[in-house]
Simulated assay, not measured.
Amino acid sequence: MNPGRERSETRRPSVFWALALIILPVINLAVRFKVTDVGKFPRTGAFVMAPNHFSEIDPVLMGVLSWKLGRAPRFLAKASVFTLPGLGWLLRKSGQIPVQRGGSVRGSEPVKAAERLVERGQMVVVYPEGSLTRDPDLWPMRGKSGAVRIALERGIPVVPVAHWGAQQIMPRYSKKLSLFPRRTVLVKIGDPLDLAEFRGRNLDSATLNEATKVVMDAITQLLEDLRGETAPTKRWNPAEHDQKETGRFEA
Rank of each mutant, 00 (worst) to 15 (best):
R182M: 08
P157G: 15
N202S: 13
N209H: 08
V161M: 10
R183W: 04
A151M: 11
M170F: 07
L193R: 11
T207C: 13
P157C: 14
L208G: 07
A206M: 10
S205Q: 12
V158R: 01
I150E: 12
R154K: 15
V148H: 01
S205V: 07
A196M: 04
V158T: 09
A166Y: 05
G165C: 10
V161K: 00
W164M: 04
V158E: 01
F180K: 13
L195I: 08
S178A: 11
H163A: 11
I189Y: 03
D194L: 08
E153M: 11
P140M: 03
I150L: 10
Q168F: 04
P192N: 10
R183H: 15
F198N: 03
K175S: 12
W164D: 15
Y173I: 06
K188I: 07
V148L: 09
Q168L: 12
P171E: 02
S145R: 07
F180A: 14
N202W: 03
K213A: 15
A196V: 12
N202A: 14
K144N: 07
R201K: 15
W164K: 08
N202K: 14
P160Q: 08
L193D: 09
G190Q: 06
I169P: 02
G200Y: 09
V148F: 00
A196G: 08
V161D: 00
I150H: 05
T207S: 08
E153G: 09
R182P: 05
S178T: 14
D191T: 15
I189E: 02
L193F: 04
R154F: 03
L193Y: 04
